[in-house]
Design a protein around this nucleic acid. Sequence first.
RNA 1: UGGGAUAUAGCUCAGUUGGUUAGAGCGCUACCUUGACAUGGUAGAGGUCUCCGGUUCGAGUCCGGAUAUCCCAACCA
Length: 895
Amino acid sequence: MSPNQLSDRYNPEEVETRLYSWWEEQGFFKAEDVSTRPPFCVILPPPNVTGSLHMGHALDHSIQDVLVRWKRMSGYNALWLPGTDHAGIATQSVVERELRKEKLSRQDLGREAFEQRVWQWKEQYGSRIVEQMKRLGDSCDWDRLKFTLDKDVSKAVRKVFVSLYQKGWIYKGTRLINWSPQLESALSDLEVEHREVKGHIWHIRYPLADGSGSLVVATTRPETMLGDVAVAVHPEDPRFQDFIGKEIELPLAGRRIPVIGDTYVDREFGSGAVKITPAHDFNDYEIGQRHQLEMINIMERNGTLNESVPEAYRGLTAGQARNKVVEDLEKAGLLVEVEAHTHSVGHCSRTGCVVEPLLSEQWFVKTSELAVPAKRVVESGTLRFEPETWTKTYLHWMSIIQDWCISRQLWWGHRIPAWKCEDCGQLSVSEVDPTQCSHCGSQKIQQDEDVLDTWFSSALWPFSTLGWPQETEALKTFYPTNVLVTGHDIIFFWVARMIMAGLEFCKDVPFRTVYIHGLIRDAQGLKMSKSSGNAVDPVELIEKNGADALRFTLISQLAAGRDLKFSPQRLEGYRNFMNKIWNAARFSLSALEGFEVPKEGLEALPQKADVSAADQWIVYKLGLVEGAVDEALQSYRFADAANAIYNFAWHEFCDWYLEFIKPVIYGSSEGEKKATQLVLAQVLNRLMRLLHPFTPFITEEIYQKLPIKAKESLVVESFPTPRNDKQWLSVGSEEVAFAVDLVREVVTAIRNIRGENRIKPGEKITARLVPESAQVQKLLGDNRHSIMSLAKLEVCEIGPVDSLSKCAVTPVVVGEVRVDVVVPLEGLVDIAEEIKRTKKSLEKKHKEISQLQSRLNNDNFIKNAPEEVVEQGRAQLDQLKAQIQSLEDSLARLR
RNA sequence: UGGGAUAUAGCUCAGUUGGUUAGAGCGCUACCUUGACAUGGUAGAGGUCUCCGGUUCGAGUCCGGAUAUCCCAACCA
């Protein structure tokens, strides 16, 4: 294989790993802390350190890589800052599962040993996700790789915590929170998934303590009656006027509780009377606070009932207790009715277990103040969502935002920097580990056992990764970052919290634009998940089809903010596209054998006299695609950009240009060949540059073999746009391009006649082209050779026709220009077939003309439509009439 | 219950501010190993743009309503 040749077959696996390590070695992805170039920064949403790459990452990263590579090629000091997340719950669960295999629990190991065990796990497996990101081609600056538990990140976390605590925006309090009995930890509201569950409503009779009667309450959770502290009715409900103020003898529990009036109660629902369990229901909690009711917590951390309930129920799980309570009520004759009922139940988004509302002491972030500027920057447009429709979602959520429960009863994560004094009971909150109580000086202090919600450290990610709280050069250069790319599923979890934290601690937005993309679904539109078995592994897809094909598939399907369905057929299609590119390059390089590179390199222009129409055409089309891609990328329309290049590469460059130039390359005119070679080399170079952000590997591999190239690598090449490519693009010509488009239409018309009449592709035929003017006649004459070779003609006559006897005729119209393509069929085909074909196209034309005519006959149209639209219509009518005339003539001669 | 979307070819989706004959990819049919590529080439079939109204000379596009599907949030004693 000579150095300027490519192997017969594209082998993505070999090429991709080789090129990626080379890029990395060369440091092409590195950004500068200080630079004269304008900064462009994207912060990678840190994937779970113990996870593996899934399709969501593949999409998210492909978008970011396109953006970053494009900006890097456009002259920016582009930084894509990578990192991984410690993912408290997920990672701890994985390691606990490992331990269970050894019949151990984390408690057996103890906190310190367990933490060490997780670190070991991280050291061992934490690099897998990074390796997989490299397989995809992510052009991150890996020297800056951060982990959410890195020392400097921890410092940032503590500083933020202390600062908010001192402002009173972080507080500790006993609240009703979401509790996962399986994790034995608190959860934030966002970590609770509500699912519709089929259950029952039990109607239970509660007797009055004075024996004067009873009332019936309805509940979906009878077991919680053991924690009831009141029964509430609507204060104006006539049925219960006499009950308010009386006491109930609470069955099974043996306590007395009051009947209270509260307007929260819906008179229409259930029995109109509600049992109140403030420690285990969010609404009841509110009512409990309003009426200063006692709160009886009946549940242990693991979800079983505690000593606050009668002995018979202690130790039972909620489910077991429910059965027993119902059974006991039935025995006591207090169960009035059981109805089927579907209601939504909170489930732990991690474990899937049912979440219990539980009264518990936890840490919270007060969000009311933080939310105000976070809303304002979005309202004012300082921070933009792309697509814009997510703005509303964001603002709506920010207006109903609740305080954020940030403490987790886990061991893996940032431990809360608060120490409780055994002597005075006060808390010391400090950035550095204190040795004594800040209130009484006692040395008997104990650090809080809890760790912070993983999203707490994620909220600081845009500045903690850049060195904050130190005023690093990187922070100065890259904050605020430019674009955040993420899925709409974590707008609240992450995006909103980053905005609040960024504004509070860096006094500026963390990023200018949030690009929201959809989620990947399977071909049927279902969510991909391991449990339902429909998840596809992007690494497998990369191994089979190459990273480029996968990236292009995802990007080309990207519809603004909408979920996208992944189909293997589509991937196959784009793998074929990669193959097409590869072979086009192979052919081009062979056509460039013996080509002498002009010393002007990329700026070299061909001799004007030698430039063919096809050359001017392809350069003109290149200019169009460069413009379209530039515009699409500027406005985040990645799919439009990808598809524009696809169309140019396949249907203009390959289908037509390479076919046009074959006779020139194999021909004898040296001057023409030289000019075409130069154009070919230049166009191929630019095509590789255009395509590179989307498909970095194959383009780099080809680029390395190009005779004309300016840089060592495409990564650091410039991105072609009509602005910076102006001189070269002047080789193209719109008028000539128009002529070539006419030639393409003529060739297609001849091929159509051949195809429809089943004329063998190999059979050489004669065609006559009848131009409507001398100008068009010259235009066709100039391109006669192209037409002959592309349409496989033996004879190509151009000029007026003397006889249409037994001829197929197709009128060809491009713009305002018309040519009749005439192919004599005598002896070639069954004339009946041709009559059918002609009739079909006549029918179509008649339909068109009648539509057009009725429009032109409408006075209102003539009056109201813009002049050029009317003019256009009239010109078209004339065209149609002429075309119909030609077809009628030929039909007459066929018979 | 509230908010947000979507409805265009068999499938997945484009269709900018209303303006000729509504496009692409995949799939399908026919023909073809012509010198980069059969992961290819050429040609073709296939659409009452969900339905009903309205605005307009003109609606896939704008407005109202209906239906269906999806997502998010809240709530359902």
